[in-house]
Design a protein around this nucleic acid. Sequence first.
DNA 1: GAGTGGTCTAGACCACGAC
DNA 2: TCGTGGTCTAGACCACTCT
Lengths: 260, 260
Amino acid sequence: MTNAIASPDEVTARTHPLPPAAMPGLSRYGRLAHALRARILEGEWAPGDGLPAEAALARAYGVALGTLRQALAVLVDEGLLVREQGRGTFVRRGLEGASLLRFFRFRQDGGDALAVPRSRILSRAVRRAKPQERGLFGLDAEGRVLTLRRLRSLEQQPCLLEQVVVPLPLFAPLVDSDPSGWGPLLYPLYQRLCGVVVARAQDHLAITRLDATQADWLRLPAQAPGLRVQRQAFSLAGPCIESRTTWGDAFAFEYTAEVR
Amino acid sequence: MTNAIASPDEVTARTHPLPPAAMPGLSRYGRLAHALRARILEGEWAPGDGLPAEAALARAYGVALGTLRQALAVLVDEGLLVREQGRGTFVRRGLEGASLLRFFRFRQDGGDALAVPRSRILSRAVRRAKPQERGLFGLDAEGRVLTLRRLRSLEQQPCLLEQVVVPLPLFAPLVDSDPSGWGPLLYPLYQRLCGVVVARAQDHLAITRLDATQADWLRLPAQAPGLRVQRQAFSLAGPCIESRTTWGDAFAFEYTAEVR
DNA sequence: GAGTGGTCTAGACCACGAC
DNA sequence: TCGTGGTCTAGACCACTCT
């Protein structure tokens, strides 16, 4: 966590002297948020890094402190920034993972400490991207993807079967590395090996019948109803960088949603 | 929609002269939000009513405009207020209903215009509240509840089976009124007949096997997997005022959740 | 045109975290 | 003790909605 500040007044002001002048119809803090968002997504500050202090930024852009704070509030709301009193404003770190378990109640005899399930890689393969994947990842006709099949278990009990698809060459480091050292969570691995920060994901839930193979891995009867979670994960910069489908026992499904 | 303002400077200032002085550790706007929240929940302004203008409120409480706006922002965030530029600040109207359908994809041949399912009341009964319901609704040992069973259909096709429990005597008007005039949505009915505004609800999802009766109503095979939605609905003031369980075909389940 | 909320400014002091 | 973000003030002007 390095504070990437040399001489904020000069550097910041020179590189990005003004909120991009005439964006018609957009408020000043809106334009400022736009400018700062661009700088963050360009990687000027790495995840975990601190931005220059409010006063410095406000001076650099020639706006009042309150205006700058409104711009920062927009980015905090978008999940790009985190502010901590007395410490500073920081670029948010990516998701850690393990959140798929929130759709299930897998009774751990011990109690409700939510453990991370063990991961076992069943297969790893590189293949040509399907048309739908090309669109999702922005690949061309020759684009290729890496696919993984994983079985995840809690206390020797299989609970989740996963099919992961990630685009190449972005994830090339995963092709040759040894899976035994990967650990149970993929997102920190993506960051460590490929420099990809997962900032956001969208889960699409449905109930399907498990086919014979799926049921077998999960030790459920064939044709049993399964919860299928189709996830698309997005990097800080916006594009989709992982498509994942997870199956689990439908009768273990449990989820709470708030309506307002 | 009436603007309940007579002479805001006097009335408002006299009844609630100050942000409750010493709430230690709480910011001024926090105390102000607290005070305003209390007045809203007491019903001083009905849902849909407009609050006095910012300037008047700020003057009445003796705070700067910015401070008042921060307090209002808190209440907007809580879902109690809605602000509209050029019009004013209004107490939020309750939920309209129909939101249970968001968990399902029921193919309407026509397209994706989401219609409100027709409602047919299967039974209505008054009984002693169970212990769990007494706790939920804050009833005493003699407390009674009204129960409803409903079948909801889209284009003659049964899709949802519902069991509704509401506390008495709050919902007494429902006991004698004619269900044929109720219409398809309960929440507007609650507001119209019982003066209860539903502001918030919590849905708990799980998969269960449908028993013979349930499956029969939904025209599904017995033992078929069903999605069970257990909902608790809360009034503006906070207490739970409805407990509802809804069953539908698990294979029609579809839901999208965002992770950040 | 009158009244509303939305934006913006240029200051001040406070609470917290790190050194 | 110093730098950070958090709170608060007292103004100004703008954009929108109603009539």
